[in-house]
Design a protein around this nucleic acid. Structure first.
Lengths: 241, 241
DNA sequence: CAGTGGTCTAGACCACCTG
DNA sequence: AGGTGGTCTAGACCACTGG
């Protein structure tokens, strides 16, 4: 079900899209400085105020950052699922050491019904199935299970992922010009099955935090289904609002 | 530690504050229509564009809502902790029936160290301790434990809470002119202790979703510490991003 | 100092809603 | 038709950064 096209497209919206295209195409790399408001206004043949609105909207959505007196710059995208940090339960400022991702495996699997619906695919459509663990000082704290449509991300394999380094999202942005943002996150408390228990070296009755996340493009098209299971005895997962 | 005062205070920021004051004071009630941009601009002796910026900022922060062709209105605050909904795990659109809160008890307890620090109180400062359960079609799905500084919310008792109806936040807004917004949320998977297990009629090894939330005023001052324990076998807690 | 983003103004016109 | 918010312009000046 495609979204309704608005009958009226403001100028700043068109400018916004043209700037996004240039970032996605790599013409403007991460942390590169954009032309000034006045130069952009001249190039797009609009007033400075209109260019400004486009730039501020893009800043709000995480595409750019601006510094008074310095300029406007391309914001580097999240290289991995990052919005959230580990903290001591009940405390709100005591951060844990960060976790490091480690790729376990990449395979192709047919889509189940739930995931197919979430990703708006036909049932049985092929998916990349990525397994990844997160370690903190040698201790495995979390497991990720990532599902991506093969159709959209052809040629994705273990070698490419390993070579890429710098996280899955960084690779997708470079290779496929797709920037992924979270659409929904679901939280549950769960017990691990045998496989996950082994990976995490967890006790049979140790409760885990399950986070199921649907990631999508800027346009809102869902392209990533992901579950993270986190050992939350020692650390909470904290999100800013 | 008080926040730094900015040396320069834009006009729209001052206007913003004056509008917030009128809402907090009750002069403009929920869903009341504000004067038009031009009228406000005239009253505050600024241009329409400046009044507009203040109004749009307030809209972004949830104080107002605007409808083209109709007007600008006071947004009713959340009457309870609401940002999040129950959905079927792994599905992203299938909402459960909503839960209904039910007050269990109100007491006064001295603050422990963690909560005192989170609420920026001295240790041992008195707190209102509110217990509340959430039911869905007769089944208890969640328990809340709410801690509020007595110093700030005097005269809060069970009778008042019961009489008020419409949720805790609605009461705080009416009675104390405080609008609470979330500052942080922490998620964990946990097992219930005996007391909670009894309240929820949960199995001993049933994993629960623990959400610890720090709520604060619009100015960022923390005033509410809350933990919610949710039976998440059947339902996930989903947040929009 | 020059260059950037940030604020503010006055005015015009457009899109949308309601009666 | 009249009133609302939404867009857009041209121009001025301010605050901040860095060389």
């Amino acid at each position: 079900m495609p979204a309704d096209q608005p009958r009226f497209q403001p100028l700043y919206e068109q400018i916004r899209q043209r700037i996004v295209e240039r970032i996605a195409s790599g013409e403007w790399q991460a942390d590169a400085m954009l032309p000034s408001e006045w130069e952009l206004a001249a190039e797009f043949a609009v007033s400075q105020g209109t260019a400004r609105k486009a730039l501020n909207d893009l800043t709000r959505d995480g595409w750019l950052y601006r510094r008074q007196g310095r300029g406007t710059f391309v914001a580097p995208g999240e290289s991995e699922w990052g919005e959230g940090k580990l903290v001591s339960p009940g405390h709100f400022a005591e951060l844990a050491d960060p976790m490091q991702p480690e790729l376990l495996s990449v395979a192709r699997v047919p889509s189940g019904e739930d995931v197919a619906r979430a990703l708006q695919l036909r049932r049985g459509a092929m998916l990349h199935h990525v397994r990844q663990v997160w370690r903190q000082r040698g201790v495995t704290l979390a497991v990720d299970e990532i599902l991506l449509p093969v159709e959209r991300f052809a040629d994705l394999d273990s070698r490419r992922l390993r070579l890429a380094g710098g996280g899955l999202y960084a690779l997708l942005e470079r290779q496929y010009a797709v920037r992924i943002r979270p659409l929904h996150v679901q939280y549950r408390g769960v017990l691990a099955d045998r496989e996950v228990r082994t990976l995490l070296a967890a006790e049979p009755d140790e409760p885990l935090l399950s986070m199921v996340r649907l990631g999508g493009t800027v346009e809102g098209e869902p392209v990533e289904w992901r579950q993270r299971l986190l050992r939350s005895a020692r650390w909470s997962w904290q999100t800013r609002i």
